[in-house]
Computed example of a mutant assay.
Amino acid sequence: MKKIVVAITGASGTIYGLRLLKALKANPAVQTHLIMTKWAWENLAIEHTGYTKQGVLDLADEVYNERNMGAAVASGSFLHDGMVIVPASMKTIASIATGMGDTLVGRAADVTLKERRPLLIVPRESPFNQIHLENMLKLSKMGVEIIPPIPAFYNNPQTIDDIINHNTMKLLDHLHIENQLSQRWQGINQAHQS
């Protein structure tokens, strides 16, 4: 069974994290470990996600308080197959890039890095300033996969759900979890080009 750590921070776009949890929950071969920050819980209501607190808790196998520095995911001896921070606030990214580890999200990410396990970060900010870019570049050089939720249009999305599903598909792909959440690029038929 794969174990995936999912952290949802206070950046806008809580639905991206919830959709990932929902997709992982649907896979019986995956166990999820959720860390949700105080501001992520606030965004749950502000962004009208349609989820209640209990609905979110039901999506995860294990849930940790962001202040619980003694949680299983705070230790390198806790074996997992990857961590996804979705959405990731710039504060969280800065904390990880400087190794602060002052919250459970930061500590779990630090442990993921030191144990050389996959760490995926979905930054939710625009435009990026130089500090944001430098922090993401620093993390990228350490092997972190930076996957912003930028929509694709080759699949002709008709709804916001289509856009969210496409990003979730990418995250699952990078975690090496098979899925068919969104239409994949099939190439261009040369016969139709002028």
Results as ranks from 00 to 15, higher is better:
Leu171Ala: 06
Ser12Gln: 05
Ile147Tyr: 05
Arg116Met: 08
Ala26Val: 04
Ser126His: 09
Phe153Thr: 06
Tyr51His: 11
Ile93Gln: 11
Asp102Gln: 12
Lys2Pro: 10
Ile35Cys: 06
Asn156Trp: 04
His174Leu: 08
Leu24Ala: 11
Ala26Leu: 13
Leu20Arg: 02
Asn167Ser: 09
Gln130Trp: 05
Ile8Glu: 01
Lys114Pro: 07
Glu125Val: 02
Gln130Ile: 01
Asp81Ile: 03
Ile93Arg: 12
Ser77Arg: 14
Leu113Trp: 10
Asn68Ser: 10
Ala29Pro: 07
Leu119Met: 06
Gly55Leu: 02
Ala88Tyr: 13
Ala71Gly: 11
Met36Gly: 06
Val30Ile: 15
Thr92Pro: 13
Ser126Val: 01
Ala11Lys: 04
Lys170His: 13
Lys91Gly: 15
Lys53Val: 10
Pro118Phe: 00
Val63Glu: 04
Ala60Asp: 11
Ala72Cys: 02
Leu34Ala: 04
Val73Ile: 14
Leu113Ile: 12
Gly106Trp: 03
Glu47Gln: 09
Pro123Gly: 01
Leu133His: 08
Tyr51Arg: 05
Ala29Ile: 03
Met142Val: 00
His132Val: 02
Val5Gln: 02
Asn156Pro: 06
Leu34Phe: 09
Met83Phe: 12
Phe153Gln: 11
Tyr154Cys: 08
Ile4Pro: 07
Ile46Phe: 13
Pro157Lys: 09
Thr103Val: 02
Leu139Asn: 11
Gly55Thr: 08
Leu113Met: 10
Lys25Asp: 14
Met142Thr: 00
Ala7His: 06
Glu66Gln: 11
Asn27Lys: 14
Ala74Leu: 03
Ala29Gln: 15
Arg124Ile: 01
Arg184Val: 03
Met90Trp: 13
Gly143Leu: 03
His48Ala: 12
Ala23Gly: 14
Gly17Val: 01
Asp110Leu: 09
Pro148Ala: 01
Pro151Gln: 05
Asn65Phe: 01
Val30Tyr: 13
Asp162Lys: 01
Lys170Cys: 04
Arg67His: 10
Gly187Phe: 08
His166Pro: 06
Ile147Ser: 13
His192Asp: 12
Ala40Gly: 15
Arg184Gln: 13
Asn129Pro: 12
Asp102Tyr: 06
Trp185Gln: 09
Gln180Asp: 15
Leu21Lys: 04
Ile146Met: 08
Gly70Ser: 10
Thr32Ser: 15
Pro149Cys: 02
Ile4Cys: 03
Lys91Val: 05
Asn27Glu: 15
Ala72Leu: 08
Arg124Phe: 06
Ile46Ser: 14
Leu79Pro: 01
Leu133Lys: 07
Ile177Cys: 04
Gly106Glu: 14
Asp161Met: 01
Gln54Gly: 00
Tyr154Ala: 06
Pro118Gln: 06
Met136His: 14
Ser95Arg: 07
Met69Phe: 09
Ile85Val: 15
Ala108Gly: 11
Thr32Ala: 09
Ile15Phe: 04
Thr49Trp: 05
Ile85Ala: 12
Thr168Ser: 08
Met100Cys: 08
Thr9Asp: 05
His176Thr: 08
Glu178Ser: 12
Met142Arg: 15
Phe78Pro: 10
Gly101Ile: 00
Ser194Ala: 10
His132Glu: 07
Glu134Ala: 14
Thr14Lys: 00
Asn165Ser: 15
Ser126Met: 13
Arg67Trp: 03
Thr112His: 10
Gly99Ser: 11
Val5Thr: 03
Ile4His: 11
Pro87Glu: 07
Thr52Val: 05
Ala191Gln: 12
Arg19Cys: 00
Lys91Met: 04
Gly13Asp: 03
Gln190Met: 07
Ala29Val: 02
Ala11Ser: 14
Pro157Val: 00
Ala97Trp: 11
